[in-house]
Design a protein around this nucleic acid. Structure first.
Length: 266
DNA sequence: ATGGCCCGTAGAACGGGA
């Protein structure tokens, strides 16, 4: 099974690129962030024509998330949950569902703007609530004998570069939003709760990033950050066969500033 | 040079992104 996450920075603008990418890669599950579409304008018919079911949660102007699932392989999503039951939030940043026997959590973490802003405090609270909600989902078997838990994939735009190797200029970014210690501590807390960073299960080229600033020729200079992630719980770790970042779409005209991250799971 | 670009909502600039 092939799965991927992609912050498209407006699905209206990027729909042709997403359809092209799906046609080329035949991904089974694709998680999208920053669709920036109200639900009435989600391109259900276009994805259906391409062979994909879609579930989504949008709002005007900002945010918006979706899970696409390939009709002829994994079928439609079941048990859709929008948002975090522990964190009432008008911002549409989370959608989760069962597909192909796995639990999928598509997440668009808050950006945080700057470490001294209210948005940063919201970001930390938002992640704390996500940790609280997902803790049972990722925990290793605590000896209770319970083995009926659905394996979970947490994927999306985390807006956190977990380590210095995920940053093109660690000194410049030190302590800044996306790289600050409180954010990184929360990413580590996700790992400690039982998730694994699929990308780091494999040897990767140095200077591998998933986002590049539109300004200053960021992509051309590879001045990027790795902030888009696929996390799998421990029961899934052995089933992950590969994980890569596809820089191709970032080279297109009118690209998203994020590249898709994809993985293969047995 | 502390801004540069891109998107949505506008119907001109501005908030937000990261």
């Amino acid at each position: 099974m092939k799965l991927a996450t992609w912050n498209v920075n407006s699905l209206k603008v990027r729909l042709p690129q997403v359809l092209d990418w799906l046609a080329a890669h035949r991904t089974d599950v694709l998680a999208l962030q920053e669709t920036k579409l109200i639900d009435q304008r989600f391109p259900v018919a276009e994805f259906a024509a391409a062979g994909y079911h879609a579930v989504f949660a949008g709002q005007p102007t900002y945010n918006g998330v979706a899970l696409l699932s390939r009709a002829d392989t994994v079928g439609p999503a079941q048990g859709v949950v929008v948002g975090n039951p522990l964190f009432p939030d008008e911002q549409q940043r989370l959608i989760s569902a069962d597909i192909a026997g796995l639990r999928w959590v598509c997440a668009y973490f808050p950006n945080g703007q700057s470490v001294d802003s209210d948005k940063y405090q919201y970001k930390l609270r938002w992640i704390d609530a996500l940790l609280e909600w997902l803790k049972p989902a990722a925990a290793p078997d605590a000896g209770t004998g319970a083995t009926d838990r659905t394996p979970t994939v947490l994927l999306g735009d985390f807006n956190i570069a977990p380590e210095a190797i995920d940053v093109h200029d660690p000194a410049a970014w030190d302590g800044q939003v996306l790289c600050s210690e409180p954010e990184r501590a929360r990413f580590r807390a996700l790992i400690e709760s039982g998730f694994r960073d699929a990308y780091r299960l494999f040897e990767q080229a140095p200077k591998s990033y998933s986002w590049w600033d539109y300004r200053q020729l960021g992509f051309r200079r590879n001045a990027g950050l790795r902030i888009d992630h696929i996390l799998v719980d421990q029961t899934l770790t052995q089933r992950v066969r590969s994980c890569s970042i596809d820089r191709g779409p970032r080279k297109l005209a009118q690209p998203s500033d994020h590249a898709p991250v994809w993985a293969e799971i047995d």
